[in-house]
Design a protein around this nucleic acid. Sequence first.
DNA 1: GCACATGAATGCATAGTGTGCAATATTTGC
DNA 2: GCAAATATTGCACACTATGCATTCATGTGC
Lengths: 224, 224
Amino acid sequence: MTVKSSLRDRRRLQTSREIQRAALTLALRHGHDSVTTEAIAAEAGISQRTFFNYYLNKDAAIIGNAPSFDDDTVARFRESSGPLLADLLQALRRLLSNSDLDRSTSQLIDRLLVRSPDLLPIFYGSLKRLRDQIADLAVMRLGEDARADAELLAEAISHALADTFRIWANDDGMSADSIVDIAAAKLQVLRGLLTPGVQPIPAASTVRPDTQAMTSTAAAPIRP
Amino acid sequence: MTVKSSLRDRRRLQTSREIQRAALTLALRHGHDSVTTEAIAAEAGISQRTFFNYYLNKDAAIIGNAPSFDDDTVARFRESSGPLLADLLQALRRLLSNSDLDRSTSQLIDRLLVRSPDLLPIFYGSLKRLRDQIADLAVMRLGEDARADAELLAEAISHALADTFRIWANDDGMSADSIVDIAAAKLQVLRGLLTPGVQPIPAASTVRPDTQAMTSTAAAPIRP
DNA sequence: GCACATGAATGCATAGTGTGCAATATTTGC
DNA sequence: GCAAATATTGCACACTATGCATTCATGTGC
């Protein structure tokens, strides 16, 4: 149960990646709708039946398996007493450093998302598992009564993370470590947008404010 | 193009609702997975082929068609110069007052979501159209460069709205007008959770802060 | 009224999805 | 090596979803 077999598991991981690669290349070449599970299986060198042993459906094969928190990370979070958001982000940092991200595969995913925007909901939806885990962590702090709030927070965090993931996939100079930081910055932009009374039309001069200023950093000043 | 036919359109709307009702009752009675499109069609008194003329798939029939902004509302938003969030909420208020919500159907949806939580992603996903429209409105203010931020904001707003919608469905005393207000309050809770350094461990006494205080209202005080 | 265009409902055929089951092959623990 | 556990595969089958042709209802112009 702890350190399970080896050859078997390595094989399993490898074929699951081969299937994903086959699904991605075929979808990019012929369009997502025109690719059948049979074609993916053939490309990956397995039977169609085996395809469904690895992935529940075609979309899951394209997106691949999102990572999830390990028990150690959860334990650390539980014991920490820092600010909620900071602790959540720290847990995500650990998550990302554990999972070895494959930039080339991520690039393929990103390109496919550009080509077939109908897949975007599926892409964000693929983070359901991670989103639920984040919500569970938040509930530990906020209490079960606040589950709806925790889920809303988790949704925002995972969305920001997914966006940043796509940026990372296309920026070779960007380290995986910085993914969480950029996502955190995006969340601060969101916080600014949620601040009531913001977007002040400057009394001074031009009507159109510098849009960059809205997005580049956290929030406009708050009127108490 | 303005006030189109009548008998035809009323019929169309009616059968589309009959189909939804059939889908919901059958799913609640026998479980979502056990219900076939053929059974839904039979229950609604139409052929299976006609079912697919009304809804793209089984899930769409269950959730029904989400409302979307009319041109007038969009125009008003464009001309307004208030704070972004306030204007978006105002547009949503108009949206909800135009669309006649059916509480009994909403109740069925909510009960089904409790019984089959696997439908939750589909439920939130069904707001894609509305979410995209909200994002488009936000982009008008923030500029095309900030589309990602606008979409993140739109996601949060539509999520909060969907949650509130479920509350409204189960609270006969709650008016449809207040949906947007409650959702706005939820967004302020989110803003509080996104505020860095929050969840202050009170220097005074016990380690465990009152969790209610975190969720009941907007945000903890901010340290500038 | 009547003829015609338009849109809706249906049956049929068909491609593709996804699952259960049983047979077979492979890996692992011993 | 050998037996147990696990993976792969083929096959059958139920269901989803779409295209196409036909029939029927509805709305429109004259």
